[in-house]
Amino acid sequence: MNRIAVANQKGGVGKTTTAINLATALAAIGWRVLLVDLDPQGNASTGLGIKHSQRERSSYDVLIGSSSVVDAAVATRVPRLDVLPATVDLSGAEVEMVSMPDRAHRLDKALNAASARWDICLIDCPPSLGLLTVNALVAARHVLVPLQCEFFALEGLSQLLQTVERIRAAFNPELSILGVALTMFDRRNNLSQAVSEDVRACLGGVVFDTIVPRNVRLSEAPSHGLPALIYDLKCPGSEAYVRLARELLSRLPRVAEAA
């Protein structure tokens, strides 16, 4: 099972929107997809239409060891796409895990036990570099970084990259940066173009060719409990995520079970 952490410690850069729509695109082409919601706000779960009454078990239960991933995962309205939902209990998980000797490996061990169930796993990380994100990076094999096309886009990116290097050295030598996805691009704003050029100049080929535009339909979709690709497949945001999914696939190792 390929595992990708969608991470950036800055909030509001499109992590959850990216995770939801890439998961939907991959499921649409036949992959069995698990989306792990590791954000206590639970926006990825809500954005896929998972009501709080359906979250009897959650990623919190998996991390503290009271449930398996298979038992806690919930099927979504998207065929072949399941979500490991989040609840507000997750906000206390970091405190509870501090005393556990394997606190950085909790998610990794849980996913190892469920590796035959899904072809690919996307992990929606919280906007921080705390123990929840560390668990995601230890469990993942790749990191996808959504980067907002605004003035402070590169602020904090070096800190995330340093964290990735530390995780690679201490826990997970297989971890690699899959790519940086530019999001919330506003073609009417010269600053967006300038930021895009600066990021490509700094990071080169690690930046995906696809740029996700700022799009009203992308913002509306979660309120309907639907991925944008289902809410409005023809909107510019959805079309961008379809292209981004193709690029992502071209960078991933082959998975024998995937369609």
Rank of each mutant, 00 (worst) to 15 (best):
A28F: 15
S128N: 08
A256V: 15
A19F: 02
E96M: 11
R214E: 02
V83M: 03
P173Q: 13
D39C: 07
S250R: 10
V95G: 05
A259I: 09
I123S: 01
G225Q: 01
A86S: 07
N172Q: 13
V6T: 07
L191C: 11
A228C: 06
E239R: 04
L233H: 06
A113H: 05
N189I: 13
L38M: 12
S91W: 11
A25H: 07
V206I: 13
L182S: 00
I64R: 06
V74P: 00
L26V: 02
R32D: 11
K234V: 13
V88T: 06
F151M: 13
C121V: 11
S238G: 09
L147D: 01
P79T: 14
H105L: 13
L81S: 00
V6W: 00
L81T: 06
F208A: 03
S58K: 00
I167K: 02
A73I: 08
S66N: 12
V95E: 10
S158T: 10
V145I: 03
L191H: 04
V164Q: 09
R168D: 01
L137G: 03
A116N: 09
K10T: 06
E94V: 09
D186Q: 12
Q9R: 14
R3M: 06
E150I: 08
E239P: 08
I50D: 00
C149G: 04
E94K: 11
Y241R: 01
L107I: 15
D108H: 15
D102I: 11
A245F: 06
W118Y: 06
F152P: 10
Q159C: 12
R106E: 03
C235V: 02
N8W: 05
Y60K: 06
D232F: 11
E239L: 15
L84S: 02
A169N: 03
N43D: 08
V74K: 02
R217P: 05
A221T: 14
N190C: 09
A245E: 01
A73E: 14
A75W: 05
E197F: 04
V62A: 04
R117T: 12
A114F: 08
E220D: 08
D232S: 07
R106W: 06
C121I: 08
A201C: 02
V69M: 10
R200D: 03
G11L: 15
R214A: 03
V62T: 02
V145S: 03
A44H: 01
A116K: 10
R103V: 14
V95Q: 08
T133E: 04
P222W: 00
R217S: 15
D71I: 04
A228L: 02
R254V: 13
S192M: 12
T163G: 06
V216P: 06
V242T: 12
L147Y: 01
P173S: 10
E197A: 11
A23Q: 05
D89T: 14
R3N: 05
H142G: 09
R57N: 11
L137R: 04
I123Y: 01
V69H: 04
D102T: 04
N215W: 03
I230C: 14
M1C: 13
L84Q: 05
V180S: 01
S68A: 10
G42D: 07
V69D: 03
A73S: 05
N190M: 06
D209T: 11
S68L: 05
S176L: 08
D108C: 14
G47M: 02
